[in-house]
Amino acid sequence: MKRKFWQNIMATLSLLPAWAVLLVAYTGSMIWSIQISFTSSRALPSNNFVGFDQYRRLFSTSRWLVSLENLVIFGVLFVVICLVLGFLLAVALDQRIRFENGFRTIFLYPHAMSFIVTGLIWQWMMNPTLGIQKSVRDLGWESFAFDWIGSRDLAIYALVVAGVWQAAGLVMVLMLAGLRGVDAELWKATRVDGIPAWRVYISIVLPLIKPMIVTSVVLLGIGVVKSYDLVVALTGGGPGMASELPGKFVMDYLFERQNIALAQAASTVMLITVLAVLVPWLYMQYFRKSGRSPT
């Protein structure tokens, strides 16, 4: 009896580091970070509380507003294109094609690379003087333009192209797992019933893989909110501030512009955005159909 008690103590002790990480590194940092956002701190934290001043200033900072607007454009396009392309690729791979493994490997390999690498590759591809634009013009299409990274209006779309290139494979893998999970007999039943394949995908399969779609949206969405590396490598936020994103705004104000209170106000807004997506989803995933409880 005494031994059993001791063993349970051991189990509890083994989770102490995790508790410490949770309480100090996650919760503590988060609260501290939020607290700073209500102060007038600049290069160093101060305890001079100024209420919502930083938030007011934040939302009158044009760079932040541009970041937010870009977040919406980039986020919506990136998520939607990734979903559509990923789904189409998964469906195409599910048609008993030749070289399925080869195609899957090709579609997924960019996902193994970092956003820095992704950004640098596409920066070179889109180089206005020597990149794709030049090669296509040399072929005779004189008016062809692919100088998005140098354009105030189009730089944000360059981010979308590079992002989709890196992440569409992820969606494909998730969707393909969903498609492969569909009961083979269900497909047989639709063939006996004479339902055309496209109709089966839309009316029957798509609703069945809804959990995969939701998971993809959450993963991609959170990736969008925190994106930093891709912008740094591809456009550096430019030209001007045409392709700034909130994730980069926070980092710049923390470590370069030495305005930590403003940065923390921005990060708090990011946090709220993420929570708005995350809470309903985690609730759906875990607390409705909980796994084995540790008894």
Partner: peptide
Amino acid sequence: SFWRVKGANLLFAALLFGAFIPYQVFMYP
């Protein structure tokens, strides 16, 4: 998974939450 540890479910749920929060939020502290 295997031991009767008080609060383990809470710890797990909270850690998961943490996994999705952008690093920018924790960075400065």
